[in-house]
Design a protein around this nucleic acid. Structure first.
Lengths: 249, 249
DNA sequence: CCGACTGTTGCAGTATGTGCAACAGTCATT
DNA sequence: AATGACTGTTGCACATACTGCAACAGTCGG
């Protein structure tokens, strides 16, 4: 809608791929060097890009700080955190909290496993949306039209033999997840890792977030992990209660 | 330098404080509502702001993803990570990696303590620059003029009785840190937490990053932690060697 | 010393962003 | 149900502020 800002913002994903010099930026934007220079300078002043010693530009520090602050301001995160901690203390495994936002599912909080073998994940990272247990819960609750549209435009990478292969299979699974009110990922993302997840709901019953417990096969089998389901659901319900104001902390 | 972009980017820190509606954004920018609307729309298209159900705007998901990618692209981080892991396995405590960038020091990697009592910190978060051991190392290596200018404009919050109280004291400490080639934070940020840190250097000998081991008093005393210094320095030197190409991994 | 390169500046023209004013919703009040 | 106050949205005329050019500066390599 605003050409100048549009161009400036297009620089960010471009730099996310790796450092670039003025000429490269100008070329990829399809503008004159002097124009690119002025845009980069403005981004620089705001700390969003950084000029490294070889004069090339890369993404800057303020970006982290902004993402950080944004995350801390999510009230669901604040409410949920103590519950996640408690669950982690009880079962020892990695606990995640995730939300859906415009086509992506992101982890917004995490409590690390107390076992030495840990799952790789990072707060802020978009999750593998077609296989993650939390993603299934969040997408299952979208309005029909949106869910179908999204399922169609997703890719279905075959991380493992158990990964969801295509849109129809995914939609079928989402139906089931919605009815049962919980979800799993049994080796669909990484062969040896299983997850059990439950939804956090707002006052109107809509799913606002989802939480999961994950553990590798070498620590507990899938069956053993499934025995934690009631505990996970209780935790999610407790968060829901507090979030919708029914159970003041 | 570019008014439009400047205005648009000013919206981001504003929203970092918390969600705001169109009118509030327009007021704080000092522009007409319609102008603010167009800027917000552009930011929205790029995923940097999100419009929540009550129509208010807040920071969006792409911001996390960008910050994420930016971090993954820091080659020092990639090189250092296995070393940090190894050090963590050897001593069990929390290990941090930090860099300096335009007036701020940020953690860019972290391996959590294997003890139940952990220090709070988060990757991407700016560190307490006047007291953190890693910050001392990074600032001690700045050119004189820049170091003095920075020291002057910093705040010196008294987190504890041992916090650095003012600029002269800070500069004196930085001198010492530079000469000895390592740094500590003994309860300067949180009463019960101590850190030992060592610098990572590039080919030219300049400090490009700093790493630290942190542990609370209840786990090890400050004296015990200091016995880890040689190990921390060896790790930092190993990273330096690899980073400057002397020791190909 | 020269040429090729990248980054930087000042400037004229106009595309582009601006504020206005009028409109469309939504909610609370009477 | 009708009124008013509110917030978000649209189209438009004006001129501001962004663009690309061309000329300059600095750096590297031959």
């Amino acid at each position: 809608m605003s050409q100048t800002v549009d161009r400036a913002l297009s620089i960010l994903p471009l730099l996310a791929e790796g450092p670039a010099d003025l000429g490269q930026v100008a070329d990829r934007l399809g503008v004159h060097k002097s124009t690119a220079l002025r845009l980069l300078r403005t981004l620089h002043e705001h700390g969003l890009v950084y000029r490294q010693s070889d004069q090339r530009y890369r993404l800057g520090a303020r970006l982290f700080a902004l993402a950080q602050e944004a995350m801390e301001n999510l009230d669901i995160r604040e409410i949920a955190h103590p519950h996640l901690l408690r669950l982690n203390e009880a079962c020892g495994h990695t606990v995640h909290l995730a939300v859906y936002e415009e086509g992506e599912v992101l982890y917004i909080d995490k409590v690390e496993s107390r076992y030495p073998v840990r799952m790789y994940s990072r707060i802020g990272k978009p999750v593998a949306i077609t296989v993650a247990a939390v993603a299934k819960l969040l997408l299952a609750d979208l309005p029909d039209a949106e869910r179908h549209a999204l399922a169609d435009k997703l890719d279905y990478p075959l991380y493992t033999a158990r990964s969801t292969p295509n849109a129809p299979a995914f939609l079928r699974e989402l139906e089931q997840v919605r009815e049962q009110g919980w979800a799993t990922d049994l080796g669909g993302h990484e062969e040896s890792i299983n997850c059990v997840a439950a939804p956090v709901r707002g006052t109107d019953g809509r799913v606002v977030a989802a939480m999961s417990v994950s553990a590798p096969n070498v620590v507990v089998t899938a069956e053993e992990l499934l025995t934690l389901l009631p505990q996970v659901r209780r935790t999610a319900d407790a968060i829901s209660g507090e979030y919708s104001g029914r159970t003041p902390a």
